[in-house]
C-alpha cells in the first residue's frame, strides 16, 4: 500500500511526515519540498514523476540518507533517519539502501565481480561468503558469465545490470533508482525494467524509482507525481488501492 496523505498505513516500511527541504541558490532560497508525506509498505514498486527541478532526486537523496531535511521526519523500518548522526546514517545506508543511477556509476578499475562486491566489504562476511553472494546476485541479473569483465568491456545495458546486482547484493531493505533507463536504448531499457519488475514481484523487493519515461513508470504498481513540493497519486499498471 502507498499513501501520500499523511495517514498511517499498516506495517509501513517507509514513512515520511511533513518533509520540508529548502536550500540556498545564490541569493534566493528554493523551497523544493513542502510538507511532503509518504507511506510505503514492503514489496511495492513505486514510480516518482514530475517536471525538471521538482525535487524528485532531492526526495530520493533524502530517503536514502544522503541528505538531511530542513524539517520533518523520515522513518524506515522503525529507524528515524533524522535522529541519526552522519556516521550512523552511513552505516544505516549500507545496511538498508541499494542505489541505482542513470549513469550506472560503476568503478572502472574493478571488474563486474569487484563492483558487486563493494557493499559486502563493509560487512563482516569472509571472502568465501562474499563470493557466494556476489555470484548469486550476478546470476540473478543474468551476468554470471561476465564476472571478470571490466565495465569498459560491457554494453550499457550490461553495466546497468551489474549496478543492479551491486544494489541488491547486500539484501537491502529497499532500492532507490534514479532514472535507471535514462541512458539506455529501447531494448536494454526493457530488459532493465523486466528485471526490476521481477525483483519486485518474485523477490518482494521494495523499489522506489524516479523516471521521466512514462513507459517505465507504467511498470510500477503506483505512480506518484511530485508537484509544488508534495506527492500526488495517479493510477498505474497493476495499481492497488
Amino acid at each position: 500500500m502507498v499513501r501520500v496523505d499523511g495517514v498511517d498505513a499498516p506495517e509501513t516500511l517507509i514513512q515520511v511526515r511533513n518533509l520540508d527541504k529548502r536550500y540556498q541558490r545564490g541569493s534566493e532560497e528554493i523551497h523544493v519540498l513542502q510538507g511532503l508525506n509518504l507511506d510505503v509498505t514492503p514489496g511495492e514498486f513505486v514510480a516518482f514523476m514530475g517536471p525538471s527541478g521538482s525535487g524528485k532526486t532531492t526526495l530520493l537523496n533524502l530517503l536514502g540518507g544522503l541528505d538531511v531535511p530542513t524539517s520533518g521526519s523520515i522513518t524506515v523500518a522503525g529507524d528515524e533517519l533524522t535522529r541519526m548522526s552522519a556516521a550512523k546514517l552511513t552505516r544505516w545506508r549500507a545496511r538498508h539502501v541499494g542505489f541505482i543511477f542513470q549513469m550506472y556509476n560503476l568503478l572502472p578499475v574493478l571488474t563486474a565481480f569487484g563492483n558487486v562486491e563493494l557493499p559486502l566489504l563493509l560487512t563482516k562476511l569472509n571472502r568465501a561468503q562474499r563470493r557466494r553472494q556476489v555470484e548469486t546476485a550476478l546470476a540473478l541479473v543474468g551476468l554470471a558469465d561476465r564476472m571478470d569483465h571490466y565495465p569498459r568491456q560491457l554494453s550499457g545495458g550490461q553495466e546497468q545490470r551489474v549496478a543492479i546486482a551491486r544494489a541488491i547484493v547486500a539484501d537491502p531493505s529497499f532500492l532507490l533508482c534514479d532514472e535507471p533507463t535514462g541512458d539506455l536504448d529501447r531494448a536494454s531499457a526493457e530488459e532493465i525494467l523486466d528485471l526490476l519488475t521481477a525483483l519486485a514481484k518474485e523477490h518482494g523487493k521494495t523499489i522506489l524509482m524516479v523516471t521521466h519515461d512514462p513507459r517505465a513508470a507504467a511498470r510500477a504498481d503506483h505512480i506518484l507525481h511530485l508537484d509544488k513540493g508534495v506527492l500526488v497519486e495517479t493510477a498505474g499498471e497493476g495499481a492497488r488501492p
Binding site: T90, V97, F99, N105, L107, L122
Partner: peptide, 13 residues
C-alpha cells in the same frame, strides 16, 4: 564521482 558512489554504497567518510 566514484568516491561519491562509494559513499552512497555506504562507505563512511
Amino acid at each position: 564521482t566514484e568516491l561519491a558512489v562509494l559513499k552512497t554504497v555506504g562507505f563512511s567518510d
